[in-house]
């Protein structure tokens, strides 16, 4: 009898806890439905319509999708620009961030001082900085070409030249490697020193230790930074919008800019939704691809193969 009553009480306590759980997370749950899930479904539906806000949406079936894939030259172009950027800037950021972290991890004095200095640009990733870089890339008076001239190189017109505009944005993105660097650094500091000691006793040199210990041990962090970096890069907006507005000659027309222009300048809400969903699908596929590839190159300690 007593055990039954106790079991019942335990049961009702568990239920109470579950109810409390749902109450506690209800702000997020409501927000998720209203601001994420609902809009996602809505934008999928909108992608099959023509909608300019002032008149009610008009169902056009696959019209927008057919237009995007067959008639819209800029559709492919903006994806191409975005891909080039993502697959140049992100790997460069990963490598550069890792190099700085490795240098910082080599027992030099005043490590937190250096760390702070390298992190500063990440704090200021805003419009003011985009404005600063817009002037820094000025062909004659900009700081970049001035510095290049000091070492004897005649710099290009950067953001004013269709061939160089995207490169300029990539160079600028390297300014913000400090955020990734901090993550690597904390990862590097977490590698057990016993591993290095054992390897040194076994006669492994500096390079060997990096290649066989350091690199495998931080592949989970590299992986995570790669996924988040690619997603982030695929959505580039502010820097391109402020520095080049997609120009010159659409050389920096990222898909994010394209969506913004279609929706809020041309008021093509339906077509812009098609573009947004295309981007969403592409990002999902890319993320899946990276996750699938991870079994070949990401090392998880404690995972059996």
């Amino acid at each position: 009898m007593a055990t039954v009553a106790r079991a019942k009480r335990k049961n009702s306590m568990a239920r109470k806890e579950a109810i409390a759980f749902h109450l506690f997370i209800s702000p997020w749950l409501i927000g998720f439905v209203v601001f994420t899930l609902g809009p996602m479904v809505a934008s999928l539906l909108l992608s099959f319509t023509k909608y300019n806000v002032s008149q009610p949406p008009q169902w056009v079936g696959l019209g927008n999708w057919v237009r995007a894939f067959t008639k819209d030259y800029l559709f492919y172009h903006s994806f191409k620009v975005t891909f080039i950027y993502a697959f140049t800037a992100v790997p460069l950021q990963l490598v550069a961030g890792l190099i700085v972290a490795l240098l910082l991890n080599s027992k030099i004095p005043a490590i937190s001082f250096w760390r702070t200095l390298y992190y500063i640009p990440s704090v200021l990733s805003g419009v003011a900085v985009a404005v600063l870089w817009r002037l820094a890339f000025h062909p004659t008076n900009g700081i970049i070409n001035t510095m290049l001239r000091i070492v004897g190189i005649q710099g290009p017109a950067w953001i004013y030249d269709p061939k160089w505009a995207l490169q300029a944005l990539i160079v600028m993105s390297l300014w913000g490697i400090g955020g990734g660097m901090i993550i690597y650094l904390s990862g590097l500091q977490g590698i057990p020193t016993a591993l290095y000691e054992a390897a040194t006793i076994d006669g492994a040199g500096r390079w060997r230790r990096f290649w066989n210990i350091t690199l495998p041990m931080i592949t989970p962090i590299l992986f995570f930074n790669l996924v988040m970096g690619v997603i982030h890069a695929m959505e580039t907006f502010t820097t391109a919008f402020v520095m080049t507005e997609g120009g010159p000659q659409n050389a920096t027309l990222f898909i994010g800019l394209r969506i913004y222009f279609s929706a809020f300048r041309d008021l093509l809400m339906g077509y812009a939704s098609t573009l947004a969903w295309s981007l969403f699908i592409v990002i999902m596929l890319l993320t899946l691809l990276i996750i699938r590839s991870s079994s070949f190159w990401v090392y998880y300690e404690g995972m059996r193969k």
Binding site: I259, A263, A276, F280
Partner: peptide
């Protein structure tokens, strides 16, 4: 991981 642009317009 969700790109903001996919919810931007309906929001």
């Amino acid at each position: 991981m969700l790109p903001g642009s996919v919810t931007l317009i309906p929001q």
